[in-house]
Design a protein around this nucleic acid. Structure first.
Lengths: 186, 186
DNA sequence: CTACAATACATACACCGTGTATGTATAGGC
DNA sequence: GCCTATACATACACGGTGTATGTATTGTAG
């Protein structure tokens, strides 16, 4: 296998990935051509297709990157367990999801580009997993746990977009606290 | 103006619209070409472009149709006011949104195709408006009302997809009731 | 150290889908 | 009964994805 070149290669792939994340985040998936991505990364489309199977493949990698950034922010802000950790985690999710590099990719384009099921599976490996695990540690294996997690997850996603489009973050956090209260004391 | 032909023309436009709704709903916006739509409607792409400005324009019309179906179902199922009406309205939203002719168009593709802001504006003329008005009639002009409506709306959308992909509708409705309880008695 | 094979890209090309320009027939007002 | 506008069909231009091919360089085996 290659050695010195391998690092070079990985760096190229990384550059393409970051460039794509920026462009997808700003203009949306369909409005961005791979020519733009390649040019922005200082390569040609050939390199892009070499590292990523297709435009969708590139997007999947970008999504994974964005979701990793978000879930990292969550675990850092709310490492513990219990209801307070969940609430803090949700708030961290909001703050992280507002980031322009994440928002549109993760919350708007991903479901449409990859399909809702694939998107959800991908989410289940990141922030949605944290939410479900947090809930399980608090309310146990209640039968409606998955449904509750789904509703909460949807509420969080919409809240993030709502904030990003001009909504007040403090107001959203208060609304979130209020909703969580009903789950804390059934 | 034309008379007999005008009706003919409107029927053609309607046929194209319905065909597009079926195809978009089943295969998704980007996977459907206007050639398919035209063929399914028994016309050529020329007719499609005559009645609708562009593929996006056609999609906007389809979305409006789908949202009208949903909001009609809501107002029929929950015509009154008060918390019970809101809860019934939400449940009606779930049942209506699960419909295969609505689901993907309204909940998955619309934000990506039209952009989140446009999508939200469109939603604000249909089910989201009903939700906001219902909330206003119950909790008054509380400052967090918009945030609460956003969270609830997101929760409902996600719940609909969750159900459509195999989740239990009764479970989702219980989770919804639980969340609404926190808002009923602050 | 040399020949070979695989990797990392660039270049060139085919295909499909959107959008637009143009053509044509019919309908309804004057 | 002419004339214009409407309702569509046909034809074409363009952009973007994907794929096939070319090429240089690197790591490796003999």
């Amino acid at each position: 296998m290659a050695r010195a070149t391998q690092e070079q290669s990985e760096e190229t792939a990384r550059t393409v990935l970051i460039t794509a994340q920026e462009l997808f985040a700003e203009y949306g998936y369909e409005a961005v051509g791979l020519e733009q991505v390649a040019a922005g990364a200082g390569v040609t489309r050939g390199a892009v297709y070499h590292h990523f199977r297709s435009k969708k493949g590139l997007f999947e990698a970008v999504l994974d990157e964005a979701q990793s950034q978000v879930s990292a922010a969550i675990t850092q802000a709310a490492p513990g367990e219990g209801w307070d950790a969940i609430e803090e985690g949700c708030k961290a999710f909001l703050r992280a999801s507002i980031s322009p590099g994440v928002r549109r990719i993760m919350l708007v384009d991903a479901p449409a580009v990859l399909g809702w099921t694939t998107w959800r599976r991908s989410d289940a490996r990141h922030s949605a997993r944290l939410l479900e695990e947090g809930l399980e540690s608090v309310i146990g294996p209640e039968e409606d746990r998955s449904a509750i997690a789904a509703l909460l997850s949807g509420a969080m996603n919409e809240a993030a977009m709502w904030i990003a489009e001009g909504g007040d973050i403090a107001s959203a956090e208060r609304a979130l606290s209020q909703i969580l209260r009903s789950l804390r004391s059934p």
